[in-house]
Measured scan of single mutants.
Amino acid sequence: LTVQLGNLEWHFDNPEQALKMAEELAKRYQLKVEIDNGTLKFK
């Protein structure tokens, strides 16, 4: 699973870790998370 923020990307083997990080980033920057083809992206 990949977490993508702008041109930064983090790759996780563990989806739970990816979701946890995505939630933290979304909270911190007040963004919405969307999943696009196995990639978590922020809007």
Rank of each mutant, 00 (worst) to 15 (best):
P15Y: 14
A18G: 07
Y29I: 03
A26F: 07
M21Y: 15
A22F: 05
Q4F: 07
L5N: 02
M21S: 03
N37W: 04
Y29E: 02
H11P: 02
N37I: 03
A18Y: 03
K32M: 12
G6D: 05
H11K: 08
K32G: 05
K27S: 11
L8W: 15
G38S: 06
H11Y: 14
D36W: 10
E23H: 11
A26V: 04
L25S: 00
L31I: 08
E9M: 14
N7L: 11
H11V: 08
K41N: 04
V3E: 03
L19C: 05
L5G: 03
D13R: 08
N14M: 07
L5S: 01
D36V: 15
G6C: 11
Q30S: 10
Q30L: 06
W10E: 01
L1G: 04
F12Y: 08
F42D: 02
A26R: 04
F12C: 11
P15F: 15
P15N: 07
L1E: 02
W10Y: 05
W10S: 01
M21A: 07
I35S: 05
T2R: 09
G6Y: 05
L19F: 14
T2D: 04
W10D: 00
E34W: 15
L1Q: 04
G38P: 00
T2G: 04
E24Q: 13
K43H: 13
E16A: 13
L5R: 00
V33F: 15
D36L: 11
F42K: 01
A18N: 00
K27H: 11
N7I: 09
Q4Y: 08
E34H: 11
D36E: 14
N37T: 04
Q17V: 12
L40P: 02
D36P: 00
F12G: 01
K27N: 11
K27M: 11
L25I: 15
P15M: 14
E34D: 07
K41Y: 11
G6A: 06
T39S: 06
E24I: 14
L19H: 10
M21L: 15
N14W: 06
I35G: 02
W10M: 06
P15D: 08
T39H: 07
K20H: 11
N7Y: 12
L25A: 02
L25V: 06
K32S: 13
K20P: 01
N37L: 04
P15H: 12
L31W: 07
K43G: 07
E23M: 13
N37P: 01
E23K: 11
N14I: 09
I35R: 09
V3S: 02
E24D: 12
L8F: 14
R28L: 10
K20M: 11
H11I: 07
K43A: 12
G6W: 09
D13Y: 06
R28Q: 09
L25C: 05
T39V: 15
L25R: 00
I35Q: 08
L1N: 05
G38Y: 06
A26E: 05
D13W: 08
L8T: 10
V3F: 05
V33L: 13
L25W: 08
E34S: 07
L40Y: 13
Q17M: 13
E16Y: 11
Q30N: 15
R28A: 07
E16H: 11
E9A: 13
A22N: 00
L40E: 01
L19P: 00
N7K: 14
V3H: 02
V33R: 00
E24V: 13
N14V: 09
L5P: 01
N14P: 04
I35M: 14
E16K: 11
Q4I: 15
F42Y: 03
E9K: 14
E23L: 13
Q17P: 05
K32L: 14
K27Y: 09
K32P: 03
D36M: 12
E24T: 12
E16D: 12
K27F: 10
E23P: 00
E24R: 14
Q4N: 05
M21I: 09
A18F: 06
L40T: 00
E34Q: 09
E34Y: 15
N14A: 07
K41P: 01
L5T: 03
L19D: 02
K27W: 09
Y29L: 10
L19E: 05
E23V: 10
A22L: 06
H11D: 04
I35N: 11
L19T: 05
E16G: 08
Q30V: 04
K20V: 09
R28I: 09
Y29P: 01
D36S: 14
A26G: 05
W10H: 02
E24K: 14
D36G: 08
T2Y: 06
L40F: 07
Q30P: 03
N7P: 11
D13Q: 10
N14D: 15
F42N: 01
D13L: 08
A26P: 00
N7Q: 13
E23G: 07
A18M: 05
G38W: 04
L5E: 01
K43V: 15
K20R: 13
L40C: 04
G38K: 06
A18R: 00
H11W: 11
K32A: 11
V3L: 09
E16M: 12
A18W: 05
K20E: 11
N7G: 13
L40R: 00
R28E: 08
K32V: 15
Q4R: 10
Q30A: 09
K32E: 13
E24G: 10
L5Q: 02
Q30G: 15
L1W: 15
K43Q: 12
D13V: 10
T39W: 08
A26D: 02
Q4W: 07
M21C: 12
F12L: 03
D13E: 13
E9Y: 13
E16P: 03
L8Y: 14
K32Y: 11
A26S: 07
L40I: 15
Q17W: 09
N14G: 05
K32F: 10
L40Q: 01
T39D: 03
L5W: 15
K32T: 15
D36N: 12
E9H: 13
G6K: 03
T39K: 10
N7M: 11
W10G: 00
L5C: 06
Q17A: 14
D13S: 13
E9W: 11
E34P: 01
E23Q: 12
Q4A: 08
W10N: 00
E24M: 14
N7H: 13
V33K: 00
